[in-house]
Design a protein around this nucleic acid. Structure first.
Length: 242
DNA sequence: AATCCGTCCAACCGCAGTGTG
DNA sequence: TCACACTGCGGTTGGACGGAT
């Protein structure tokens, strides 16, 4: 639903920090009416804000279920690993960190974790710098996966997605596929590269991060599949081209 | 006490993708 | 098919705050 143009013209958008009263108006409106068109929400909640601003405020601050507060060690490790694999895909990272917003993750990365990763790099002895876990891209001079892939001869991730441990255990990995679990070869196939040798990964945008499990499961029969046990309940599956 | 500086975080901006009339 | 509006995303900015000088 879109606001009438005459209605929109009346709105003189306010900018800057939100007042407690504005927060209350937005929260009350959404809890009573739900989220439809954000421009409509902005007008009918009685806010002199644009829809975009309302959306951002709701998603990053007012939405129920947000954790706020300090990141746990587990969350930080998760972010560092995900960043190594995904690059600056903050919204995708936030899907794996319940209660955390993309903005929060992005800010935490820039203010804290980026330096932490850099320090870890500096502490590493030379001969071990190239032996990293598949998803830990620790070359902090590389700001994006695209850069990493473009500037170095590295394995290229064709797709990656999550699977629950339960789904994974039921899945049949027969055929000419390779499975690597926690860095160890579980099932040998046509795979000829060594995943431990890569320190950075690039993404092919056309195949990057299929959203639905079914999309990428279709590809399993055609690609070399690797996976990593990521936390207690999820498996990350991915395919590389060497 | 004043002010300078670095850090953190909320919010804005611009762009790309998608939906709709 | 086209134009316009909306949504979502990532990059960037600017204000608040605290510590150092």
């Amino acid at each position: 639903m879109r606001p009438e143009s005459s209605e929109k013209e009346k709105i003189k958008n306010k900018k800057g920090l939100w007042s407690p009263d504005e927060d209350r108006k937005l929260r009350d409106y959404i809890l009573n009416n739900g989220v439809g068109c954000w421009s409509f929400v902005a007008v009918h909640a009685g806010l002199q804000r644009n829809g975009k601003s309302c959306r951002l405020r709701w998603i990053n601050y007012l939405r129920p279920g947000l954790k706020r507060g300090k990141f746990t060690l587990h969350e930080e490790e998760m972010i560092m690993t995900l960043h190594g694999m995904l690059g600056n895909k903050w919204s995708q990272m936030s899907r794996h960190l319940p209660g955390r917003t993309d903005n929060e993750i992005k800010n935490h990365w820039h203010s804290y974790l980026k330096k932490k990763v850099k320090n870890l790099d500096n502490k590493k002895p030379q001969d071990t710098q190239n032996k990293q876990t598949p998803f830990t891209r620790t070359d902090s001079s590389l700001e994006s996966s695209e850069e990493a892939y473009g500037s170095r001869n590295l394995p290229k991730i064709l797709f990656a997605d999550w699977m629950s441990l339960d789904q994974f255990q039921k899945f049949d990995f027969s055929g000419s596929q390779t499975t690597v679990m926690n860095g160890e070869l579980v099932n040998e196939g046509s795979f000829s590269g060594n995943i431990q040798e890569g320190s950075s990964y690039g993404f092919d945008d056309s195949l990057q991060m299929k959203n639905e499990l079914s999309d990428f499961l279709d590809l399993l029969s055609e690609e070399n599949i690797m996976c990593q046990n990521f936390n207690d309940s999820d498996i990350m599956l991915y395919s590389c081209e060497f």
